[in-house]
């Protein structure tokens, strides 16, 4: 493989990895606060993509407006989901909450099949994102440049928010100990709602960027990216925002680079993430940047 091909693959990997990172942040924030794998996160991602599609093609909004409306509606959707499916089970055994999350994901997927139609839809990609740039023989779709930039901005914003604002402080408190933070007069439900709002907004942004990169919408399109991004979050150390970004980038790079170097493994691409997950869980269960939490009796 010559250097140019390597560079090409690396750019692709970077953009895919940043996309994974963006979605992984949503998982990691929700998990950090509620200790809940939000199985429906991938489906929220799908809803974001579809809403932008309908905004742009059915309501003929300009693309920036369709994007903003889609993000806003998806955020409301995610917060509503938490209210309906997770809040009533806050004090139930963890398995119940997880079944509820699986059920929610199942329900959203099936509803999407009914409402959005099972046939794939072509996502209208605006001129600006479809442009193809050539730098020194390396072809880059402009959306591949936009994705890492968006991820970097969001990462910076979230790190600032979590470590420098009152809401962020409350979030960290809730994730350390829900009961104690309640005693400290933190409105836990409000913090959880805010977390879900941020997570869902990120999922929507991720879904739209995904649709710009792979312009094909399907009701089940959220499942695989959803699983992989959860894995990315676990690899980075679940609960840590920087870890999610690291895990996402790592996963994107490993996935594309392995295929680039060993093309005969292409068919196994979807299994890489799971193998990586199992290796990480066995070697360092807390992930690369995760903190070790002692077991409570």
């Amino acid at each position: 493989m010559d250097f140019q091909t390597f560079l090409q693959q690396f750019v692709n990997a970077l953009s895919l990895g940043s996309l994974y990172a963006l979605i992984a942040i949503g998982y990691t924030m929700v998990y950090g606060i509620l200790r809940l794998i939000n199985f429906a996160h991938g489906d929220i991602f799908m809803v974001g993509g579809y809403l932008a599609f309908y905004g742009a093609s059915a309501f003929l909004m300009p693309w920036w407006m369709a994007v903003i409306v889609a993000i806003a509606l998806t955020t409301v959707f995610g917060v509503g989901l938490e209210r309906v499916a997770y809040r009533p089970l806050r004090d139930s055994p963890r398995i119940s909450i997880m079944i509820s999350a699986i059920g929610a994901s199942f329900l959203i997927e099936n509803l999407a099949i009914v409402l959005f139609d099972a046939r794939p839809k072509a996502f209208p990609v605006p001129e600006f994102f479809a442009r193809n740039l050539v730098w020194g023989g390396v072809h880059i779709a402009s959306v591949s440049l936009v994705i890492p930039v968006v991820t970097a901005i969001i990462l910076a914003f979230l790190l600032w928010m979590v470590h420098r604002t009152r809401i962020g402080m409350a979030m960290r408190a809730v994730s350390t100990d829900i009961e104690a933070s309640r005693l400290m007069a933190i409105d836990v439900n409000r913090i959880v709602s805010i977390t879900f709002a941020i997570g869902s907004a990120l999922a929507a942004i991720g879904g739209i960027l995904w649709a710009l990169k792979y312009p094909r919408l399907e009701p089940l399109m959220g499942i695989m990216p959803g699983l992989k991004c959860f894995i990315a979050a676990v690899i980075g150390g679940i609960g840590s925002i920087a870890g999610a970004v690291l895990g996402g980038l790592l996963l994107g790079i490993i996935e594309l680079m392995t295929v680039a170097f060993l093309p005969e493994l292409t068919g196994y691409k979807d299994a890489f993430a799971f193998v990586l997950l199992i290796v990480v869980l066995l070697v360092k269960p807390t992930g690369l940047l995760g903190k070790n939490q002692g077991e409570k009796v």
Partner: peptide
Amino acid sequence: RLRDDYLAIATLGFSEIIRVI
């Protein structure tokens, strides 16, 4: 050796690996 949700996601991963194979 894993528990709760980690076990769930690892077993899910195994089943997907089997399918890919």
